[in-house]
Write a protein that binds this DNA or RNA. Structure first.
Lengths: 350, 350
DNA sequence: AGGCTGATTGACAGCGCTGACATTTCGACT
DNA sequence: AGTCGAAATGTCAGCGCTGTCAATCAGCCT
């Protein structure tokens, strides 16, 4: 014996299974990998042996022999509350394809970013990667991935690259719809709180707002469009400025829920009656959206689905064909409006 | 050539490195694994070759030959906003030991739990696992892990098992301190909102509250101790009931921030002036704590540190010795009070 | 110079599986 | 029965590394 066996748990190998099923290891391998060309009776016999021995193929051996890894990487910069939902969706989809997810935080600002990424990819022999923003937009990441030659799916990238598959949501349409809900309730002076410059979401959400306003023949007051950078603290000041204008806006559309919560605080401090004197809507359906009073009307991100779809794209990639099919796959997911208490008809006297 | 090489990226193997350094592959292996017994001059030569060729050892091959995997698993049931922070800390520590983290959601309620867990462990040949609650408390998980014979670190387990290393925080002391802050500000009637029964945190936090009250010679009004199950919605009703009592409590201690946010909403709906008429404190320092007005005084969980310590325990495990050292390692981390606006002196007239 | 010890290095098999290719089996058709 | 092609199965080397153990080397002593 080569090494002291761990207590009692010497897992069966493919050979043991083969013996028991009365076939060669190669045939067992065929069954495991779902290859065609195995008589169904033989397959049954092998499957039975596998079940009986509780056999688990050794991933490392499969990887080494087959030049695969069964691993895909999920790279992110700042963790946020959305990450765990996203990754749970991705893992679920991975399981269906017998893949596994490695999560790897990475510093977008680090000068070592390219090397770190490349090291991880090559050491783990990743079969694909999923990139969360803002990583999905960095040229150095693109370059490294191209050099590595593995499929990469970009989540909500700023600019769609011709050669980069992506998954994103139709933020523009959702904001257009929700803004329309505001207008339908009589709101005319609506403040809009922008996200951080450089994010695709910032741009798309604003465009959706503009769409709806123009479609209803309304002009946009530049004073009522300000940035809160997706942050609560900045959103607070931003909201205060907006609410100081006269005539006061009767509604505020914040580009995310954190800022919407900030607007709510600001309004409260000014003793406005909510939602009667001010309607507030946000975006994301973050946990905070339903933990304030009134609860925030917002747009729900299908985070799990996004994760699932991202993993799906990777698992559908056919390495033996050269690269992605053209045009590269892109998934555009719909969003769902969540109407809650923070949205009310505009005050009569406005 | 055995198979079509991926475009351009045939990674160097240990043999190439050995040739270039003028040594045998085994010596390169020794350098990679930091084994002693390599002359420092030789080591230098090998290191140079590695750097020059940008060599990355193949994990699968290392694993297969050395009967390791370099993988540890992080198992969780419900993802939450805390998960990503935790896992980021764990990954960071893993990197220092050349380990990688596989995240795996698992359904605590599933009848297949044991089998699923066992399959994952054996398929990936995990070297250790980290269990987040409530998984850390399930007997079937314990049994599976014991059978697998790999180290497992339990995060905040309900009961400390003799043979199970764990990492948790001193919730009891933190609540005692924070309650004392309340009392020092003149509060005498303090409501306490319990978490979900069966969680260690629920119990410990309540005990901390009791400690502080008794230490100050105060009795606990059973009417003012109710459960909100860690949920916002239930916390809302719970708070309403408490605030309906006369004399009204002048402060509410909620066992987590979600429920504290609920108490805040309830108070608002009853038009109480906050924090003048009612102080509210929570626990966790969840994102919502700083997104409501007034911001919540709470207790900060060092999530990253917990993750880091958990990974550290695993990486310090010495498989060649039989199991964990006795007594089994346990880490008890301190918590930090975060004093914010929701805490104020008790109203005079109370 | 010879012998001895411990430190360094190397040779080689084999981890468990799969790719390439060889061989056997089977059924259809003369 | 004999032939043939496709389908099913088997053989075997080798993926890249590490464990085992043997060989070599340097330093020190007598």
């Amino acid at each position: 014996m080569r090494r002291a066996a761990a207590p009692g748990r010497a897992s069966a190998t493919i050979e043991v299974v083969a013996d028991r099923a009365g076939v060669s290891p190669k045939t067992v391998s065929r069954v495991i990998n779902n290859e065609r060309g195995v008589r169904s009776e033989t397959r049954e016999r092998v499957l039975t042996a596998i079940r009986h021995l509780d056999y688990q193929p050794n991933l490392a051996a499969r990887g080494l022999a087959g030049d695969r890894s069964f691993l895909i990487g999920l790279f992110y910069d700042h963790p946020g509350d959305y990450l765990s939902e996203f990754q749970t969706g991705a893992v679920q989809r991975c399981r269906e394809s017998n893949l596994h997810l490695m999560v790897e935080p990475l510093e977008a600002a680090s000068p070592e970013l390219g090397r770190d990424l490349s090291t991880l990819i090559r050491q783990l022999r990743l079969e694909g990667v999923i990139l969360l923003p803002p990583l999905s937009d960095l040229p150095v990441v693109h370059a490294t991935l191209a050099a590595a030659g593995i499929p990469a799916v970009h989540i909500a990238p700023m600019r769609q690259q011709d050669d980069a598959p992506s998954v994103d949501t139709d933020d523009r349409a959702a904001v257009r719809q929700l803004t329309t809900e505001l207008l339908r309730r009589g709101h005319r002076r609506v403040g809009f709180m922008l996200g951080r410059a450089g994010h695709r979401a910032t741009e798309q959400r604003y465009l959706g707002f503009v769409d709806a306003m123009h479609a209803n023949g309304l002009d946009i007051d530049p004073q009522l469009v300000q940035t809160g950078n997706f942050e609560f603290a900045e959103g607070l000041e931003c909201a205060r400025r907006m609410l100081d204008f006269r005539p006061r806006p009767t509604a505020i559309f914040a580009s995310n829920d954190d800022m919407a919560a900030a607007a709510l605080c600001a309004a409260r401090q000014m003793s406005l009656a909510l939602p009667r004197q001010l309607s507030i809507v946000g975006f994301d359906d973050a946990p905070v959206a339903s933990m304030v009073w009134p609860q925030l009307t917002t747009v729900r991100q299908p985070l799990r689905v996004i994760g699932r779809v991202a993993a799906e794209l990777i698992s559908e990639y056919q390495p033996h064909r050269q690269g992605w099919p053209r045009p590269v796959p892109r998934r555009h997911l719909p969003l769902e409006l969540v109407l809650r208490g923070s949205l009310a008809p505009a005050p009569q006297d406005s």
